[in-house]
């Protein structure tokens, strides 16, 4: 039971922070299928800086966890500029731009990883080794049954994500910037009429989504995969999109969707393990989160509504 909660949380929270990035972008009116690419590229920049710094100064790569997180956020944000420029300045189709960015991210990071490994370490490996981030347990609280599992074996990034997620929630729903951002996705013309630059708002929204996705990607690299390779493109970004649509483009329901994914995933793995079935049966339990989502969507989708101006290119002259 405890493992379900522990593993579920460590999967759900990075997913959640990527989904929040998606919510920012989509609430401002920019369709964002590029989350997958952002998280991968962010993780690439983070892992690369960690590996290079560890190599240059001889520090242990475990200690560079926070440095990697920082660089991942910067990297994700930097890469998201492409999506912002393409879909806001160049008025490209946002869906297409997103897909192209995913393809480019995969291609660039695989190419650069082998290239850098060959140049710096002299071995043409296609991954950066990172190891798994250290975990901590809050004594005392951890002994409470069931709830205690939340405080057991926690990755430090889970705390960071919760703090950032709270801040993101506050920014989106309680500040003037957040209100304008949400209005840009519903009725950009009224935002414009109020004397606010729609393009600027949307630009910053996309950058925020890149920043948060980079963070999420790095967390995946430091926990599940323990290295950076092209395996980071497992579809986490798409899963985050599914979660945010499921959550009806609102932060709290999206958290619920992410937790559902996380617990269904770890629960499935747990059932397969405890029944001592052969390893191929694990695959069958892996579909649990996805089947569950589809079924729940059948019941809850009727009232789902995307931001009205989502995916539309903002044209001042249009009425």
């Amino acid at each position: 039971m405890d493992t379900i909660i522990i593993d579920g949380l460590s999967f759900a929270l990075p997913l959640f922070i990527i989904a929040i990035g998606g919510i920012y972008s989509e609430k401002s009116g920019i369709t964002n299928l590029a989350l997958e690419g952002f998280q991968g590229f962010g993780a690439f920049i983070g892992a690369m800086s960690a590996v290079l710094i560890a190599n240059a100064f001889g520090t242990d790569i475990q200690n560079l966890f926070y440095v990697a997180l920082l660089f991942a956020m910067i990297g994700g944000m930097g890469f998201s500029i492409i999506h912002a420029v393409l879909s806001i300045k160049f008025k490209a189709d946002q869906v297409i731009s997103g897909v192209v960015i995913n393809i480019l991210a995969l291609a660039l990071t695989t190419f650069l990883t082998t290239q850098i490994n060959a140049l710096v370490f002299g071995a043409a490996s296609d991954k950066f080794r990172l190891g798994v981030s250290e975990r901590f347990t809050i004594e005392g609280v951890a002994n409470i049954p069931v709830i205690g599992a939340v405080f057991t074996n926690v990755y430090p990034f889970e705390v960071i994500i919760i703090v950032i997620a709270f801040f993101a929630w506050y920014l989106l729903y309680k500040t003037k910037f957040g209100m304008r951002l949400r209005a840009s996705g519903e009725n950009p013309h009224s935002v414009d009429a109020a004397g606010v630059n729609v393009s600027k708002i949307r630009f910053s929204a996309v950058l925020i989504s890149g920043l948060l996705s980079g963070l999420g990607g790095m967390c995946f690299a430091y926990s599940i995969s323990a290295n950076f390779s092209s395996n980071i493109y497992m579809g986490y970004g798409f899963l985050a999109i599914a979660a945010l649509i499921f959550g009806n483009w609102r932060i709290l329901p999206t958290l619920a969707a992410c937790l559902l994914f996380g617990f269904a995933k770890s629960g499935g793995a747990f059932i397969a393990q405890s029944m001592a079935l052969p390893s191929s049966f694990t695959d069958l339990f892996m579909i649990l989160p996805y089947v569950l989502t589809l079924l729940l969507l059948i019941f809850f989708s009727k009232s789902n509504r995307a931001p009205r101006a989502l995916g539309e290119i903002y044209d001042k002259g249009k009425r």
Binding site: G235, F238, F246, M286, I287, V291, L294, L297, I298, S301
Partner: peptide, 21 residues
């Protein structure tokens, strides 16, 4: 059911991948 086709196709991709595997 008004389910966004992006979500359905992503979910079905995963389901197909695991079940067939």
């Amino acid at each position: 059911f008004n389910i966004n086709e992006v979500v359905t196709t992503i979910m079905l991709n995963y389901i197909a991948q695991y079940v067939i595997s």
